[in-house]
Computed example of a mutant assay.
Amino acid sequence: MLRKVEHDNMGTSDLGWLKSIFHFSFSNYYNPDNMNFGVLRVLNDDLVESNTGFDMHPHREMEIISYVVNGELTHGDNMGNENKVTRGHVQYMTAGTGIYHSEHNLGDDVLRFLQIWIVPDKKGHNPNYGDYKFDWEKRKNKWFHIVSSKNGKAPIKINQDVNFYVLELDKDNNIDFSVDKNRQAYLVQIEGSSNVNNISLVERDAMEIVEEDILIKANDTSHMFVIEMKKV
Results as ranks from 00 to 15, higher is better:
66 S>L: 06
125 H>W: 06
49 E>T: 13
104 H>C: 15
114 L>A: 12
70 N>L: 00
168 E>G: 07
131 D>P: 04
76 G>A: 07
91 Q>F: 03
63 E>K: 15
99 I>F: 05
148 S>T: 13
139 R>P: 01
40 L>W: 07
116 I>M: 15
133 K>M: 07
70 N>H: 02
99 I>L: 11
159 N>A: 08
86 T>L: 14
91 Q>L: 07
77 D>H: 03
47 L>C: 10
167 L>Q: 05
42 V>S: 05
135 D>E: 11
97 T>L: 06
70 N>P: 00
120 P>W: 11
102 S>N: 12
157 K>L: 00
100 Y>E: 11
67 Y>V: 07
51 N>S: 14
118 I>A: 11
85 V>T: 14
78 N>V: 06
66 S>T: 12
74 T>N: 03
140 K>N: 04
137 E>H: 02
155 P>Y: 09
132 Y>R: 14
101 H>A: 14
135 D>W: 00
66 S>W: 04
83 N>P: 00
62 M>T: 14
125 H>N: 10
146 I>L: 15
133 K>C: 07
60 R>Q: 07
154 A>K: 07
59 H>P: 01
79 M>K: 15
42 V>G: 03
150 K>Y: 03
74 T>K: 05
142 K>A: 07
136 W>H: 13
121 D>I: 06
74 T>Q: 05
138 K>L: 01
168 E>P: 02
144 F>I: 11
110 V>N: 08
78 N>L: 04
138 K>Y: 00
40 L>F: 07
40 L>M: 08
105 N>R: 07
153 K>T: 03
120 P>A: 12
91 Q>C: 07
159 N>R: 11
98 G>Q: 11
147 V>C: 02
69 V>N: 10
46 D>F: 05
134 F>S: 08
83 N>H: 02
72 E>F: 01
59 H>W: 03
152 G>A: 10
92 Y>S: 11
117 W>V: 13
139 R>Y: 04
160 Q>W: 00
144 F>V: 11
128 N>Q: 15
80 G>W: 15
164 F>E: 14
157 K>H: 00
47 L>I: 14
119 V>F: 09
60 R>G: 01
131 D>V: 09
133 K>A: 05
51 N>Y: 13
145 H>W: 02
167 L>V: 05
143 W>E: 01
153 K>F: 00
152 G>C: 07
153 K>D: 02
148 S>Y: 10
119 V>I: 13
152 G>W: 03
107 G>P: 02
48 V>Q: 15
168 E>I: 06
162 V>K: 10
44 N>A: 05
141 N>K: 11
39 V>D: 03
57 H>Q: 10
116 I>Q: 13
96 G>M: 10
122 K>D: 12
50 S>V: 06
152 G>Q: 10
99 I>A: 08
